[in-house]
Design a protein around this nucleic acid. Structure first.
Lengths: 335, 335
DNA sequence: CCTCGTTTCTACAACGTTGTAGTCAACGTT
DNA sequence: AACGTTGACTACAACGTTGTAGAAACGAGG
């Protein structure tokens, strides 16, 4: 049986509240009393019951991070930074996988939410602004572009400009037939839409035609999808001299397909990705990419949550932008 | 303000306990009463307060998974399966990163543990059996080989046999100078020790000499360590015709270093890894590896925890073994 | 019609913690 | 000497839930 405040109190010969005061660092406790209580605490190996504390205080000290899939490197890396940033606020992070399924996302956003966690950092794929509108409950910070004018705080990066810049990098290299992999027709692809827009902008600014045949959709953004899309382009007889993949895992798949087709990267085809996952720093060739500042994204998200928890819950939603930079590596530069 | 049982009870004109009974599916409630309560519940959008429920019941419905680092693909993939397996038991999973630091691991094993979670699935790197001995509290399942005869349930795979088999695969290919990357001198490397033992066994069985110069240590098992170790071997003038890396990320780093040195894989050097992470299925070349059944590992761990929670907490520790298989890909077979 | 068992519901206490209000002694001020 | 202030501590209630005990209503068997 676990020990409670009461057990410590009896052993130290004081009231339950005095023990509570010692545990919580209340100042008006005589040094000798404090010492006696602390001794009893360590003798009994007392640990506070968090459920009880939270029932009383109305806060749990736990926040949740909900992402589509943990084994997508981008989300795993992000999760790592969120856990670290949350630790600075004394929060524990509960990580939830939604699989990108709308139903599960709704469960996370409403169900889990209640009373178990103080707040939620949420990277939705399928959820719409309407789904979120009804949720008055738990403070929430959204990551990414999915929900356009939702009722919640958001941390984003400027996808359009970033996509324009990385496409421009390909144009500067003298590439003229630049393919794009990762477009999505459905509502789900807010990031896809923005990155495609940036790609188109860069082409237009350079006086290059936007060619439908060069744009390949990808149902999900896994390696396998990138490989399939690249193979599709090649079999269709399209011969790009560069490819902009909307994330790094797509790009790694594309590298694989190009390799299988006997094409050299970057000599025959230059390849760029988006996200700067660790794999891209060791792939053959290493991958040029847009590197969002994931650490900053995590920090901003946790900060927004902290403000929302301490401050006015009804305040208008804020949107913060995190920086990014281009990482130019072998896949666009001959060694 | 959130609604409580009391609010629902007032609206439905029944007692608090009756509402509680409806929520918990108690059978002896008149259909019309049940309907009235359910209507009130949905009108008020009532959700139980989990802290209160758990305070009362002594269970939280949350288990923790503690891993060294989330952005190591093996752990990310494992985490995914654990979350899925736990969902079958109605458990939420709280994921904790220890960074492999002993201090943090101790905190997780004792501190977080208390009252917030019902049980812990733990993949320790630095913790010893002695560290765990004092923890009477929360039921725990250990993953991997670190703690040799600890007091807790464990799920392992047969590292020695698996390592012997994959080394044997290299020998069958006619390779004779087989290097090993990933050995660790410190206490931390239980998996390293076992895999090295399997490697040595295979050499001995084939009548090959065990050559210290062919065994390269790696402080951690990241891509960068694998690349550094491989470069080290090559600069030292050691010219292996095969390399057994103790995990896949090491192997991906080694592939990179071999590429930079102008050596072809598998023609000049065959490479194998361990873990079967997704990257290895798309790398250039694709990576031969030992594929532990991660899904099964997760299932067994959750099952052990469930038994421990429902059954005898003082029962002797059980150890279960999960299956694995060899995945032979391009890095050991010319296309 | 009475008894007994079942169904349906309720009042109360308890889980372990902390905020509030209070007691009592010691101290400094007038 | 009377007074207010502060320090050190305690009793009590409350957070929202569920187990226990039991009351009231009902039906079946005698």
């Amino acid at each position: 049986m676990r020990n409670r405040l009461k057990d410590v109190a009896e052993r130290a010969g004081v009231s339950v509240k005095t023990v509570s005061n010692v545990v919580n660092g209340y100042v008006h406790v005589r040094p000798d009393t404090r010492a006696r209580v602390e001794e009893a605490i360590s003798e009994l190996n007392y640990r506070p019951n968090l459920s009880a504390r939270h029932l009383r205080k109305g806060r749990t000290g736990v926040i949740a991070l909900a992402v589509p899939e943990l084994d997508i490197p981008y989300f795993a890396e992000l999760a790592r930074y969120v856990v670290t940033a949350a630790a600075d606020y004394g929060w524990t992070v509960l990580i939830d996988q939604t699989g990108g399924r709308r139903e599960q996302e709704r469960v996370v956003a409403s169900g889990i939410t209640d009373h178990l966690i103080d707040g939620l950092i949420f990277s939705p794929l399928a959820l719409t602004a309407e789904d979120l509108a009804g949720l008055d409950g738990t403070p929430m910070v959204l990551l990414g572009e999915r929900v356009d004018h939702g009722p919640a705080d958001r941390v984003v990066i400027d996808n359009v400009t970033a996509a324009r810049e990385i496409t421009d990098h390909l144009i500067q290299l003298g590439r003229r037939r630049i393919a794009a992999i990762g477009s999505q027709r459905t509502d789900e692809g807010a990031s896809a839409r923005l990155r495609l827009a940036g790609y188109a902008e860069a082409l237009r600014a350079a006086g290059l035609a936007y060619d439908e045949a060069l744009v390949a959709p990808a149902p999900a953004w896994h390696r396998a999808d990138g490989a399939a899309a690249m193979r599709g382009l090649l079999t269709a007889g399209v011969r790009p001299d560069a490819v902009f993949c909307f994330n790094d895992t797509l790009a790694l798949g594309a590298l694989r397909a190009l390799h299988e087709a006997g094409l050299r990267v970057p000599e025959d085809v230059a390849v760029v990705g988006f996200d700067d996952i660790e794999d891209g720093r060791f792939s053959i060739p290493t991958l040029s990419t847009v590197a969002p500042d994931k650490e900053r994204i995590a920090q901003l998200a946790v900060e927004l949550l902290a403000h929302r928890l301490d401050g006015d819950r009804a305040a208008p939603a804020k949107e913060l932008s995190a920086p990014y930079r281009l990482e130019i590596r072998e896949s666009t530069q001959a060694p």
